[in-house]
Nucleic acid binder design. Structure first.
Lengths: 116, 116
DNA sequence: CCGCTGATTCGATGTCCGTCGATATATCGA
DNA sequence: TCGATATATCGACGGACATCGAATCAGCGG
């Protein structure tokens, strides 16, 4: 099986000025909405909070998969969070560790900052 | 037609400590996910940014309805944002004005603050 | 009272998405 | 090499949702 380097995960979007700074372009709205959508599911939010509240903002899947859904569903949600750029993942031996991507989260927080 | 005071819009949720502070409860995750979901649509995000970037964080529907979808769809999206507690609305004569709810937006921003 | 404009509600439709069980891949130890 | 454990992918199903046109409601001016 050959490795196809197509569609790598994080778009590393330069996201974004505060929402009060002006109207979002269609493209910016599209990219940003995708990040909010990643956090718009209760199960994903709980997974994300479990990881973010772990020391170092990092956790093994095995540490967080008790959220009331099946294991494939957990994997599916973690993939969504990773594709949105909010998490990164790394395999270490048998286990896969997911880590919060601070810049992406900070970008979302900054966008909702209402100070003018 | 009698006014039924059922299901008023903004739950005025005490939302929330930073995501790094600990795992979200199921109920908190539910409430918070609903707020993120409100911003997870490109059209809604553009409507929200148009209102937020208006002076006073307030705009008439007629000022912002040029987002490429039909007028009923605009109304539908504004209702979603209002139900999520992110906007409030007020009728002034012929027009309806939507205003950003600063506390709700600040709450979301604070939740994504990674400073420990 | 009537018509006009602004805005919401209604019903229908097509698509997206969360969920699952089954299966596949990866790593380790015996 | 084989089995066990950890994680990911696949395919299917059901419910949620964005969108529209049509109809309705709400003010305002004549």
């Amino acid at each position: 099986m050959v490795e196809l380097p197509v569609l790598q995960d994080a778009p590393a979007a330069p996201c974004c000025p505060p929402i009060t700074a002006g109207e979002l372009s269609v493209a910016d709205a599209e990219r940003t909405a995708a990040m909010f959508k990643a956090l718009s599911d209760p199960v994903r939010l709980r997974l994300f909070s479990k990881i973010a509240s772990h020391p170092g903002g990092e956790a093994c899947v095995c540490d967080i998969q008790d959220v009331g859904v099946s294991q494939p569903t957990v994997s599916h949600h973690l993939k969504k969070l990773r594709e949105a750029g909010l998490l990164t993942s790394e395999r270490r031996g048998t286990w896969v560790y997911y880590t919060v991507a601070p810049s992406a989260v900070a970008g979302m927080s900054a966008m909702l900052d209402l100070r003018s």
